[in-house]
């Protein structure tokens, strides 16, 4: 029982991190039908920047916030340089452009920080406390709390402000939104900024939790985040969050059932099952193919 509770908490923590990263993919896809391959590299870059700032002694909250802001800025830059010029081309064109942008960012990160695995300092202390005779770790709870707060802020931003409503219009039909006077060249970068900000926050929490940061992390994060997003229904902000939690829990328990070697396979199994059984996700609305 104690083990089950521990795994549950760990799963929720990892899952909420996936959810934060998934937002960047899910929102971009729902607007432009573009798989933003650069996102994984953007957030890895952000995590490395946080590492450098922590090493040179910037206070922890400031360093983390600056890293997130950098992630937002990087997301917007990539959009401006690599995606906007090809926004309305055949869908394969922006995706290849995204791949290219991701390679450039990853290569730059490798030039700066090198290809080896770096240890990440303990930003959140690893205390634990006792509750009903149960040893509860402190770090996962903080991670869950931070994720919930960030997602709540993003939800308020998207559901209750003018900006958020404009974003939803653009999601539904980008051309009509433009005709209605919504400045899509402000809204689309904004979406990338939100995705980059939350993504770097997620990446920093992820590397704190696993205590390691490395270049290829972006690719793994891409998968986990995508399967979370698809589980919840792509384009569905809250669905992605629930999807992330489900994936995290499933991974935590798969370690118990089939061993840690196959933990990373869980996300793939989820993607395939969702595609086979319910392609619109657990909470997604039925959508028709767009060309």
């Amino acid at each position: 029982m104690a083990y089950v509770i521990e795994q549950l908490i760990n799963g929720l923590a990892v899952g909420s991190v996936y959810a934060l990263i998934a937002v960047g993919y899910s929102m971009v896809y729902s607007i432009l039908y573009l798989i933003n391959f650069a996102h994984g590299d953007v957030i890895t870059f952000g995590a490395f920047t946080a590492l450098t700032m922590l090493v040179i002694g910037v206070p922890i909250p400031v360093a983390l916030f600056l890293a997130c802001v950098l992630g937002a800025a990087l997301g917007m830059t990539v959009e401006r340089i690599a995606y906007r010029p090809v926004r309305y081309a055949n869908r394969i064109v922006p995706m290849i452009s995204a791949l290219g942008a991701g390679l450039v960012i990853a290569s730059t990160a490798q030039a700066i920080w090198g290809p080896e695995v770096h240890a990440f300092p303990q930003v959140i202390p690893r205390w634990s406390f006792e509750l009903f005779g149960q040893l509860i770790p402190f770090q996962p709870l903080i991670i869950i709390a931070i994720a919930v707060v960030l997602v709540t802020i993003a939800t308020i931003l998207l559901d209750y402000t003018r900006l958020g409503r404009a974003t939803k219009c653009v999601c539904q039909d980008i051309h009509a939104a433009q005709l209605m006077g919504i400045p899509i060249n402000t809204i689309v970068p904004l979406v990338y900024a939100i995705g980059g900000f939350l993504g770097v926050a997620g990446a920093v929490l992820y590397v704190t939790y696993f205590n390691a940061v490395y270049i290829q992390m972006g690719l793994l994060a891409t998968f986990k985040a995508w399967s979370a997003a698809m589980l919840g229904g792509v384009g569905n902000f809250h669905g992605a969050f629930v999807g992330g939690l489900l994936l995290g829990i499933a991974e935590a328990f798969s370690v118990v059932v089939v061993g840690s070697a196959f933990k990373d396979g869980v996300s793939l199994v989820f993607i395939v099952l969702i595609l086979l059984l319910k392609p619109d996700g657990l909470f997604g609305e039925r959508t028709t193919a767009r060309s």
């Binding site: 340089i81 290219g100 991701g102 390679l103 450039v104 990853a106 290569s107 490798q110 030039a111």
Partner: peptide
Amino acid sequence: PGLAGALLVA
């Protein structure tokens, strides 16, 4: 990889 990436975008 980085050079190739830049080439792809361009």
